[in-house]
Design a protein around this nucleic acid. Structure first.
Lengths: 225, 225
DNA sequence: CCAAAAGTGTTGACTGTACACCCATGT
DNA sequence: ACATGGGTGTACAGTCAACACTTTTGG
């Protein structure tokens, strides 16, 4: 390894963030409309070049706050994409992150921006800028996987939620239906949630019990879900 | 996202590679002795600044060939480390990779180098340069995980191997003993290997049947191991 | 013939899966 | 009263974990 790093090639470094949420029982990703070339007016992930004196993680947090007005959410590094053809301007390295946000925590400030951030269902991703579709597909796989061996789903749900919301969230992420009784049994065994005593209001049917997560810290499950 | 990337801050970009192999039924990592500051004469992962016109993956492949004389092995991107304190020279981003190599494929060329590459047991990692110990610990976890839901172990074993070698490899990576009969049963069910008809020679005991992997392509297993 | 590792099955506990009906509420 | 989603249990199949002795060879 050579020591004087000033001599060496330094490509441009960007971060892009896949921000997932659950809305209407669908898994959605936050996209913005690009205001400039390349890919002007294509949908793209929020992201950008890193600033001086910030790490890629800092950068991700900054963008998250800036584009969706959120902090204190689940964020983890995803993968570093650096295919030579991914950016028409040349070799641009993107360190990607993914974030999980309960829908009710998001406060857009549309007035200040022209990029019109918008949540788009993962089932309707067409014509994205750069390799952003690949990034989202990769992120979803990671999320699916993580759902099965951690309690990470807590980071997508509001404070109180019905069992049905929980199950629908799993179904939206995994992309398949689950059996109601088996889901309930298995999930209760995990001991991650407790009944709040509260009930859901305002539905036309029998009110559902509301549950809450006992811990909001990421933990690995002993058994695969 | 701003468009003229020339204006933006470009940190130094390096790659470091965790090269695992199994030797004497132990999981080992290839380390080199750093010839220069910082961390002069500390053990470190092979790595270096990326060259002009190569991607981080290209760089990993180049280092792999250069430092251990190997190609056509299993390589995958691990994680991007960019903690500000990881390098005393300043902010240096390292995109790390991990590689899996059967011991018999490695041909060091010690005569040309002063870095004395050497395989070190993962149980004996002391005083490594930079954050390289963290990187190795992270890589090992990834490998443990991968071992359980893919056939990746093929990339650590020689063409023909006994069931015992296979089991010892699992044990070395996972760090725990496995039951001989259950291991055999489970692994055979997976249908990944077949008996070659050959027998192990030169041992003092009953000769073991030699097996070989049917496919050398990475595949996910239906069931967790 | 002895030492050393190879090879081989069964059982009981647990886990996963399939499946259908009554309940509580708002309209 | 009815439409709607909420809530509940059982039985069967498959998988996992524990466990000990015989076989084959080289020395």
């Amino acid at each position: 390894m050579k020591e004087n790093n000033k001599k060496y090639w330094s490509p441009s470094l960007t971060t892009d963030i896949v921000i997932f949420t659950i809305e209407n029982d669908e898994l959605k990703v936050l996209l913005i409309k690009r205001p400039d070339d390349p890919f002007k007016s294509y949908w793209a992930l929020p992201g950008g070049f890193i600033h001086e004196n910030e790490t890629t993680h800092d950068s991700a947090i900054r963008i998250l706050k800036d584009k969706a007005g959120i902090n204190e959410v689940y964020v983890e590094q995803l993968y570093t994409f650096d295919n030579k053809k991914r950016d028409p301007r040349g070799y641009v390295v993107s360190v990607t992150y993914f974030a999980l946000v309960p829908k009710d925590k998001i406060k857009f400030d549309f007035t200040e921006r022209t990029q019109s951030p918008q949540f788009v269902s993962v089932k309707k991703l067409h014509n994205l800028a750069f390799d952003h579709k690949d990034i989202i597909v990769y992120a979803r796989k990671r999320l699916q996987f993580k759902l099965e061996y951690t309690n990470v789903v807590y980071s997508l749900l509001p404070k109180n939620f019905s069992f049905n919301k929980l199950q629908k969230s799993y179904e939206a992420i995994l992309g398949r239906k689950l059996d109601k009784r088996n889901f309930r049994k298995k999930f209760l065994q995990l001991g991650l949630i407790r009944s709040t005593g509260k009930m859901q209001r305002g539905t036309r049917q029998r009110p559902a019990k509301l549950y809450t997560f006992i811990s909001h810290r990421l933990t690995e499950l002993k058994k695969f879900f």
